[in-house]
Design a protein around this nucleic acid. Structure first.
Lengths: 257, 257
DNA sequence: CATTGTCGGTTCATTATTTGAACCATTGGT
DNA sequence: ACCAATGGTTCAAATAATGAACCGACAATG
């Protein structure tokens, strides 16, 4: 791995749960020498990609991202486009709609909309990491990802996030087959208890799967009629989103509408 | 310069005006070999920091920034805090208020609010680069920056953005002296014609100047009363913002209120 | 329709940078 | 007063970055 990649990979250790990381911890997390880690962090800090909170304190993500994400959004108004599509999706289904993006092997939510049709709704958080094996979005993405990513994910021990999480690799592969046939993936309580979610992949201009659109509803509200509605709306929204983002569904994405 | 810094510095060439840059152009801009540039861009692309638009197309900023800026904002809700302060500032003055951040020698706007007190108002753009010598924010930042940054900026030929832009280094140093005494900087039509703006620096926890708050009004509306109002409100807002962001004004920032 | 220029991308011997074990200096807990 | 952390630093050894030249593809040009 090149030096640049090492430096950039450090940024992936920051998360909602651990927004600040000390030098020693970071070195251990990255499996790198402390001196190396220090120099990389210093380089990142010089460009505002990380900063140190107080005096001699831990590192956290820097202010550069504010500027660069504003520029990105100005060049490619992805979030705006996504929110538009998600909004109508959540209105049509009466449930929470969200979109996630795959970046460096991690899937994280980047936009979501709520419906006000019901008092209860599934709550989302920005930039939350969605496990690939335990969410409908993850399954949808895996289904249309290169085999080596699938193998890599499924060869590791799979963590059960709820009692309902499917952690058996063979069983997950079955789910992927089903998703390939139906065009959408399903997860019932696999990520959060009492949440039933459907997801459909989204593709870029080279037909690589870049993420997924999903609708999440409380299991108590889910019935056949709602499932059918969600599946139809979701497939339509995902295809529309793919097109709006300048992407093309691959040849092997043939949902039976 | 280390490899990491080189890679990160490539990102600075993207701007609102040039959101996409080809390999050859990028190499020329960065003054680096094409092969080097290619490898760096590839590394950046692997982490989602840049991406290629179509097939064999130019590079642009990638989707990683969406995620990382969301995480940054979750850890350090700077924008939220800033917008709150700016909102009351623009209400109090009846004019456009904005805040800019200094990153890697570049000052760029990262939040702004409008007032609806008048039909005309100064318009802002997100992530717009503010020149250090031709804007009130730039002058405010320079005033409280290390001498070497000031020297570096003023030793280069200064570009005139309007007929009113002050491009004489000695004259600018006078403006900096005045800002040091008054606590705020002023620019009349130096960046955009017919815009009269005031700015006050903002500091971090180590009392380094990290940016500025400013109020921009049409020159036609500016009179003594408005100037006094803006200066008072601005100084108060900047100090409040510095505190809210966990910063401390340095010993030599002594505005006479 | 051949010519030329430019583009993104690739190669590989040379070279300069990164690396990491050991070492400081501080801090905070016991 | 001690010990065990921490962030930060050093310098010879090892490795990764570098850049001139080179491709193949495409577009404009004559």
């Amino acid at each position: 791995m090149g030096t640049t990649s090492k430096a950039l990979s450090l940024l992936n250790f920051f998360s909602r749960a651990t927004p600040e990381i000390g030098l020693t911890d970071m070195a251990r997390l990255a499996g790198m020498n402390k001196a190396t880690t220090y120099r990389l962090l210093t380089d990142l800090a010089a460009h505002g990609f990380v900063e140190q909170a107080g005096t001699g304190r831990e590192y956290r993500l820097g202010p550069a991202f504010l500027r660069l994400s504003a520029l990105r959004e100005a060049a490619v108004p992805m979030r705006e486009v996504a929110v538009d599509v998600l909004k109508s999706l959540s209105i049509a289904t009466g449930e929470t709609a969200h979109m996630s993006l795959l970046q460096g092997g991690q899937l994280s939510t980047f936009a979501f909309t709520y419906s006000d049709a019901h008092g209860t709704q599934v709550r989302m958080e920005d930039a939350e990491v969605l496990t690939l094996h335990a969410t409908s979005s993850g399954l949808a993405v895996l289904t249309f990802s290169p085999a080596d990513l699938v193998d890599q994910v499924l060869s590791q021990p799979l963590k059960a996030l709820t009692p309902e999480t499917v952690t058996d690799a063979a069983q997950i592969r079955q789910q992927l087959d089903q998703c390939r046939q139906q065009g959408f993936a399903v997860s019932i309580g696999g990520f959060e208890r009492d949440v039933h979610s459907h997801a459909v992949p989204v593709f870029d201009s080279r037909s690589n799967c870049i993420g997924a659109v999903a609708v999440a509803a409380p299991v108590t509200r889910m019935d056949d009629a709602l499932q059918t509605l969600i599946q139809q709306e979701l497939l339509g929204s995902a295809v529309r989103l793919t097109r709006l983002l300048g992407g093309f569904p691959p040849a092997h994405f043939r949902p039976k509408l």
